[in-house]
Simulated scan of single mutants.
Amino acid sequence: MQVAPLFNSSAEHGEGPVWDPISQKIYWVDLLQGIYFKGDLSSSTMEEFSIGQPLGFLALRANQEGLVMGVRDGFGFYNEKSQLFNLIEPSPEQHNSEVRFNDGAVDPEGRVFGGTMEWNGADNKGKLFRLNTDHSWNVLEENIHITNGMGWNPEKDTFFMIDTNRNAVFAYDYEIESGNISNKRTHIKFANAEFPDGMTIDSEGGFWIALWGGSKLVHFDKKGNKIEEILMPVSHPTSCCFGGADLKTLIITTSKVALSEKERLENPLAGRLFKIETNTVGQIQSRYHG
């Protein structure tokens, strides 16, 4: 598969790509810099917005302008026109400086799932939260090292989440009415030296997972059997999503935060956004209904 860079912009720690099929724009974040980008694939133009604090993930809203986000201080909303960020108070971990939001996704009923981690992921202080449509929230899971890639199968009865430092994708039974999860089990286990980061789940239930430090994406079928490995021209791919008019373009974020100055010179594409044209159709990412 041909891997090609997108846009003439490099993130320190690119993460969390989200495709908007309505505007045909791609969003992604520069996590530790507290910035997000919005790009147009057809014209290669992009905009940049600053939130003012580390930005773990963003998602689109169904009935409101702007975005819902998981930031250092918790859940909140950003309005692009006014360029103002408003935190939901109280927010999860609002006063706990040891952790930050790292990744998130919107469930099939329009609720936000967002996960935290300790800054370096060494201790299992991360939690998984659900932001309901009335702006209340619940704790769904605790004792996580690094909450990462999340998604649902096409049948909408199973939730998947990566814990990077446990080298695994975990599966949970998912109850669509309540948004509750249960019956945690390991779905895909990686070697101890492999660190799965972000991922996307396609319309066939297959997994496309970025390997942090592994210079590749790994594609599995819905049962967790490896189909292929896709080599990347950078060492630290971080996440991916499907976009483009036909939802067949795989868009990948990357990072250079772990690289030394010498390594950055040797890896000039690190931090760039990339695309791969595939024969697989992705799932449209849900929008938050609050």
Rank of each mutant, 00 (worst) to 15 (best):
V71K: 14
N96W: 07
A59R: 11
I181S: 11
F160T: 08
S239W: 07
G179L: 10
A105F: 09
G198Q: 13
T147Y: 05
K81F: 13
L31F: 11
L140R: 13
D40N: 12
F159A: 08
A210S: 08
L55T: 04
K262N: 14
D202E: 10
G115L: 15
N143V: 10
D173I: 12
G115T: 00
E142R: 11
G149Q: 13
P92T: 06
S10N: 09
N63R: 01
N165M: 15
E12F: 03
W212L: 14
E47G: 05
S42T: 15
K81L: 10
E80H: 05
I144S: 08
K127G: 01
F274T: 01
S235L: 13
A210F: 06
G110D: 06
G121Y: 07
T253W: 11
D103A: 08
N192L: 13
F101H: 01
H95P: 00
N96Y: 05
K216T: 14
H236T: 10
M117K: 11
T158A: 01
G74Q: 04
G149R: 09
H135A: 07
N148G: 13
G205K: 11
V18E: 06
L67P: 02
W212K: 02
T45E: 10
E109A: 13
R166W: 02
N148C: 15
G104K: 05
A168F: 13
E65H: 15
G198Y: 08
F7I: 07
H187P: 02
G52V: 13
G179C: 08
H135D: 05
E109Q: 11
K189D: 04
N63A: 09
I22W: 04
L128P: 01
K184R: 15
E98F: 14
N124D: 12
G70T: 05
A191M: 02
G74H: 02
F49T: 12
G205N: 11
E48W: 00
E12S: 01
D123C: 08
W212I: 15
E155D: 09
G205Q: 03
S91H: 04
F159K: 06
Q24H: 05
W28Y: 14
N102M: 12
L269T: 13
Q283Y: 05
T280N: 04
F242M: 05
I209L: 07
K222F: 01
L250D: 03
S50N: 12
